[in-house]
């Protein structure tokens, strides 16, 4: 339970962090909250040569409204997201989901950027940012780029982020009519299944829906068949039930572990899709 030896550096700015990361030749890792990384290092599943602490970089944390969008800095903690009055007013699904993460100790240290970069298959926030159609803003030695959240998550613990790149934050158009529903693993509070649903409703009719699942497969992903069944339908219980009934039918590589079999997970994807949609429609 002791990590291999490594060096520790505190970055002063985003560019300083990028330069320090480059200097490690791909062997360094960024430290934000550390509540996933440090346990992995103790188990020697991760053996970086150096940790570059980005948790103190001014301007990398915080929640802002900008040009009709909301921007959350990468090192904003889950606790800060959960407590944000701005988010509760403009996009309540985000603080709702943040409050479902782990326990207070995890939420006080764990960060949004860290959760996305780590991409644990059972993490909550990946589903939320995919459902909201968020952009992940990334900076590397070559400058800035933005990736749609749904393209960012690629596979098990695998994301579109180079070893020399840093997530600076996420940006999305806030939406009130979105909800998150989660089946907790009772000890860890990871999602056995978690579903985020975002509805664009006008005059009682769903114009479009975005629904994303986490915990069920290798990575957070959309449920396109559910979204298609909702588009153009009345935003009521019947439409929701019909759409939720097909949730997960397109999923491949469904997770199987001691908490849930494939059959149970597939059944729960339907249940929690319905609950997330009901929550979204009620807002």
């Amino acid at each position: 339970m002791i990590p291999v030896e490594f060096d520790y550096e505190r970055a002063e700015s985003l560019d300083d962090a990028i330069a320090r990361l480059a200097a490690t030749g791909g062997e360094g890792k960024l430290l934000a909250g550390g509540h996933s990384l440090v346990p992995l290092m103790k188990l020697r599943l991760s053996e970086p040569s150096s940790l570059i602490d980005i948790s103190r970089i001014a301007g990398l944390s915080g929640i802002r409204e900008k040009d009709g969008k909301v921007e959350i800095g990468a090192t904003t903690t889950h606790h800060e997201v959960q407590q944000s009055e701005l988010l509760r007013r403009l996009c309540p699904v985000v603080p709702e989901a943040a409050g479902e993460i782990g326990d207070p100790q995890i939420r006080h240290k764990g960060t949004l950027g860290g959760s996305l970069a780590h991409a644990d298959p059972s993490a909550d926030m990946p589903a939320v940012v995919v459902a909201l159609g968020a952009e992940v803003h990334i900076k590397g030695p070559g400058g800035w780029r933005a990736v749609a959240a749904e393209d960012f998550f690629q596979d098990l613990f695998t994301v579109d982020l180079g070893p020399d790149e840093i997530i600076a934050g996420v940006q999305f158009r806030p939406l009130r009519s979105a909800g998150y529903a989660k089946l907790h693993q009772r000890a860890s509070h990871y999602a056995i299944v978690g579903v985020a649903a975002a509805l664009d409703v006008e005059g009682g009719v769903v114009r479009s829906a975005r629904v994303a699942v986490t915990g069920a497969s290798t990575h957070a992903q959309r449920l396109p068949n559910v979204e298609e069944l909702l588009a153009g339908r009345p935003a009521n219980a019947e439409s929701i039930a019909a759409a939720a009934a097909v949730a997960g039918d397109t999923l491949e590589d469904v997770n199987v572990d001691l908490h849930a079999s494939e059959e149970y997970r597939r059944a729960m994807v339907k249940v929690f899709t319905r609950r997330a949609l009901e929550r979204a429609a009620a807002r």
């Binding site: 520790y8 550390g34 509540h35 440090v38 940790l51 602490d53 948790s55 100790q105 006080h108």
Partner: peptide
């Protein structure tokens, strides 16, 4: 902030 001291590095 309430934290788990086992997952915070002393250097932090």
């Amino acid at each position: 902030a309430l934290v788990n001291a086992c997952c915070v590095l002393a250097v932090e």
